[in-house]
């Protein structure tokens, strides 16, 4: 290849790159056609009473784990979970009143990342691979920056974070192409479906619940559905005494 050819190829390559880039920008614009959902403070209200109607229903869990490529690993202790059911007396250890109604005591309560206002996981992360998004309070994660030290798992009082002890891709039967898969050795958790909110969609668990037990909305908006539920029901949160200010509320 002489110099002339080299310059020519460089030129062709540049044009090619530019076309590719333009295509991607246009594609991104198309995605943004549906206007994104925004809020000053996202929060979730979970109505345990409604959930109890459907014994053994796992629709919300399935929906979440499918769209997010969460691997199904059945080895005890090695599971990756974004949202799952935990017996009431485990999810709310400090609420152990004696003689609670039997159905409530062992009621399968949905647990997920609480997207705390004051998240200990964010405080302890040594690489800022997890952070609270200033715009709407979602606790985000960067799976490319995470070094896998698991300090966030140690710091989380809710057991909401999962570590990829295994290569997660080996445990995926189908892969959703529009959401990244993860590698072994990084931590992951619920993201309040930040990627769906960007596309104007509510979180997958909220959409797929047949009982409409999950409500998602802006806590700062006085007229939002979540605020109405909080104003008209007695709600509890997990371990409020720790000062983390969880943003998942439970109607019991």
């Amino acid at each position: 290849m002489d110099r002339r050819d080299f310059i020519k190829y460089c030129g062709i390559a540049t044009v090619g790159l530019a076309v590719g880039k333009a295509g991607r920008i246009l594609a991104a614009d198309k995605l943004l056609e549906e206007s994104p959902l925004t809020a000053s403070r996202w929060a979730m209200v979970f109505d345990l009473r409604k959930c109890l109607h459907k014994d053994g229903c796992t629709k919300c869990i399935d929906a979440c784990h499918t769209v997010h490529n969460v691997p199904k690993i059945d080895i005890p202790g090695d599971e990756v979970k974004w949202i799952w059911k935990e017996p009431f007396d485990h999810a709310f250890e400090e609420q152990q009143n004696e003689h609670l109604p039997e159905e409530l005591l062992h009621a399968p309560s949905l647990v997920l990342c609480n997207h705390c206002d004051n998240p200990p996981c964010v405080r302890v992360c040594p690489t800022q691979a997890t952070w609270k998004r200033a715009s709407d309070g979602i606790v985000m994660m960067d799976w490319h920056r995470c070094i896998g030290c698991r300090y966030c798992i140690v710091g989380c009082p809710y057991g909401s974070r999962s570590f990829n002890w295994h290569d997660p891709r080996k445990y995926l039967t189908t892969i959703q192409p529009d959401f990244p898969t993860r590698t072994k050795g990084v931590v992951e958790k619920c993201t309040f479906c930040s990627e769906r909110l960007d596309r104007g969609l509510l979180p997958a668990c909220v959409v797929d619940c047949p009982e409409k037990a999950l409500t998602f909305g802006d806590l700062q908006d006085v007229h939002s559905e979540v605020r109405e539920l909080l104003a008209s029901n007695f709600t509890i949160r997990r371990k409020p005494s720790l000062g983390t200010q969880p943003q998942v509320y439970y109607i019991v």
Binding site: V124, P126, A129, R145, I147
Partner: peptide, 28 residues
């Protein structure tokens, strides 16, 4: 510490993104 990391070869991220709020940063 190195052998405990899930992604040991990303360990330099501790220095690339220094996080004074983390005690692990100060321990380093």
């Amino acid at each position: 510490i190195f052998v405990d990391m899930g992604q040991p070869f990303r360990i330099m991220n501790v220095f690339l993104y220094p996080s004074p709020r983390s005690m692990m940063f100060w321990d380093t």
